[in-house]
Write a protein that binds this DNA or RNA. Structure first.
Lengths: 332, 332
DNA sequence: TTGTATGCGTTATCAA
DNA sequence: TTGATAACGCATACAA
């Protein structure tokens, strides 16, 4: 009952392995009779082709490597769902790697994925990645890579992003329309594409409403809870914000916690908007107004783009950036 | 710069492939001289062994297949972190499959993982799985499988669980010590092991406190939000609960939402305890007291158990159940 | 219509 | 100490 091979079938039916192989692949050269005999026998012994042998032959693994900062983060796990959904439809496997925001681990994961002969890569950059030389190696090896959400500051690569500028603009505009004027913006490390784009959206909204930009209210913040707490405390103590626009799932969570610790502040009419896909946003107190990214769809689109590159055969798919719309969900 | 093989190295250095192979594996039969030449050259051309060829040869894939209901669930993503952490240390890859609580998908995933020649499986059962015949097939194919959290009701398998009975007992006891007497218990489908064990803990605590068990207060509930809402509404309308003990991340989330919709009820002195690893439990309003499972550790232990089976070589590792302690985190 | 031989990258066996 | 060859499972070019 251990793994049956084509050879076993050939022996049992007194045929050659090539005949069996062709019969199983429904080749035109094989008689209906033989085909029937082979497929029926194969079924009866639960034959399943060995994908490893196939991979070795075709030098393809039929797997794609997904590299994300962490999966215990609703945005990323939703994206992964989208990737998963699309990839499995096409018989591809998804192997997930986590960088925990470390460039070194990102590189190690990449090496690892390549060593395993991933056919393609889908990736969202770590918060510490500034070097993109590995892209040359990938090109040399003909391994396509599609970035999503956190993408490199380069034109010559494939990207799927959401319209961060517009999302941040809408979020800020929402706060302004609530009468807020001192809007703190707590955001991810400045190297990230999303950070820059969202900051630009924030600034544009302030400018369009003739509100001066106070640099003290703009804070880059790492993903450790303590950092977020300190940032929040300093803002409240020294800079008198009347509202907060916080980016990323993890930061939103940490900052929310930091705000909770300042009960007196929350008791005032503080407004908070998060750029996040947190599942519990509507259950928090105060309920969190959010800019929600179409995470599942992002995963789908990234995967489809990857497949279009994989199936290009000679034709070259132009480098492109797919931009999806965000949704502002007002809860306060 | 495309993938360098042993053959390429052999040709370049005028050696045979076997010599190169042995030199790279640091075999005792090879002269120090040759070894040095080979390893240095290999490094210079960025040789990485092709794991697919190795897999074909060894009939091992060096990957393990993880099957869970869903990854966008903090409990499962934490467990996966633990698995990931342990597996990668040993050079193993983790391929994740989601069942979305469907038995059919669970079976399909299993087939898929086996077809890909996973060396082992780590699995948490879907909410609709009652048939365990596939275990025989796995045994016949010598594929070890370790279950965690939601495990089969069988003795002859490997399991890693948390002490659900004790966890539920402590949770219920906590509510009783708050003066609660009509404690509603909303829990997962009755087929699941965790459901039975937690129910037993709930009942034991009531019994030990001389509180009669009201069957109307015990509700099995699926994972759709609507179901949870209906359950909550019916309980409140018709059965006068003074507190809730809700099991599973997803159910806790859905029921919390259902409770929020009943503002009048929440305004009373209602106590809620969740059996969940939700990251935002402490940020909810009211803050959610929880029984927290050692999810990461569960993943670690399951993986280590799996490896001990994989490395057993002849020796048989006895079927066993590893039970971890839960933590009651009181927030109210 | 079917069979034979070869190769994918690697290691193990046997020979030299 | 090194080399030639077969084998892992499969697909295919070439023969028959």
């Amino acid at each position: 009952m251990t793994n049956v091979t084509i050879k076993d079938i050939a022996k049992a039916l007194n045929l050659s392995t090539s005949t069996v192989s062709r019969a199983l692949r429904d080749s035109y050269e094989i008689s209906a009779d033989t085909k029937k005999k082979v497929t029926e026998y194969a079924k009866s012994v639960h034959y399943t082709p060995n994908p490893i042998a196939l991979s070795l032959k075709e030098n393809k693994s039929h797997s794609i490597c997904v590299i994300v900062p962490e999966i215990a983060n609703n945005f990323f796990s939703e994206v992964i769902n989208g990737i998963d959904f699309t990839a499995f439809q096409r018989g591809y496997h998804v192997v997930i790697f986590q960088t925990y925001e470390s460039f070194e681990r990102e590189q190690a994961n990449l090496e690892n994925g390549l060593a395993r002969r991933a056919d393609g890569i889908i990736m969202s950059l770590s918060g510490t990645t500034e070097n993109f030389e590995y892209l040359d190696k990938l090109r040399a090896d003909n391994i396509p890579i599609v970035f999503f959400d956190r993408v490199p500051p380069l034109d010559d690569c494939y990207k799927v992003v959401s319209d961060n500028l517009e999302g941040a603009y809408k979020a800020t505009q929402h706060l302004i329309s609530q009468g807020k004027k001192r809007i703190a913006h707590i955001t991810s490390p400045p190297v990230l594409s999303i950070t820059k784009e969202r900051l630009a959206g924030y600034k544009a909204a302030l400018r369009d409403n003739n509100i001066d930009i106070d640099q003290n209210l703009v804070r880059y913040c790492g993903f450790e809870p303590k950092e977020a707490f300190q940032t929040i405390d300093d803002l409240i103590k020294n800079h008198n914000p009347d509202s907060f626009f916080i980016c990323s799932d993890r930061l939103a969570l940490n900052c929310f916690e930091g705000l909770k610790k300042n009960k007196n502040v929350l008791a005032e009419d503080i407004c908070i908007v998060g750029y996040t896909n947190l599942k519990t946003a509507h259950l928090l107190e105060p309920p969190l107004t959010t800019v929600r990214q179409p995470a599942f769809e992002m995963g789908q689109q990234a995967t489809e783009l990857l497949f279009s590159i994989l199936n290009a055969k000679g034709r070259t798919i132009p480098y492109q950036t797919i931009t999806l719309k965000n949704e502002l969900i007002v809860r306060y």
